[in-house]
Amino acid sequence: MRDDLQLISDWIPQGATLLDLGCGDGTLLAWLGEHKQTRGYGLEINQDNLAACFEKGVNVLEQDLDAGLGNFQDGRFDYVVMTQALQAVLRPDQILNEMVRVGREAIITFPNFGHWWVRSYLALRGRMPVSSTLPYEWYNTPNIHLCTVQDFETHCYKHNVRILERQVINRHHRSGFLAKLWPNLFGEIAIYRVKA
């Protein structure tokens, strides 16, 4: 399993109920179901991913995140998880509101656009950054709302979303001394646990 998923799974207690937004092939849900007896659903729109979830026996619902989570009641899940999808939705602010409404807590990961390498790529080469965490060209990227650690935290503060925990890691999914000290400069992937 991807290291960022491993980090997330450490945050999720035994028997929790989950909603995984953009659950991919269901790896996280399958692992948590098996090892932590969690129950829940993934939301996904990609056909191959749906088929992979069906085969794994992971509950998955074909549902577009941009249409909101109106079909789920307040506080229906212990955790609503969204990994690497915040930057790809039409309205990240709205989905964040929905996540903390439907989940008692929410876990979010996104690529940090404030990382020094991204900054220097744009500053020195004058071109949109391409890296292993941001592998697309400007014209074909699904990442339409990239943000920095600073942006995210400011948004949470302004909109009364409480940050309970933060981890920033590098491309090797390690959390170094520099990243702890200056997360917006040295973190490549940001992982947050938040609640309303």
Partner: peptide, 19 residues
């Protein structure tokens, strides 16, 4: 179909849905 799915999710049943 989504009425059925929503009802099952509400009841905490195992369900998958494809459109």
């Amino acid at each position: 179909s989504r009425e059925i799915v929503d009802g099952l999710v509400h009841a905490g049943r195992d369900v998958s849905y494809a459109e």
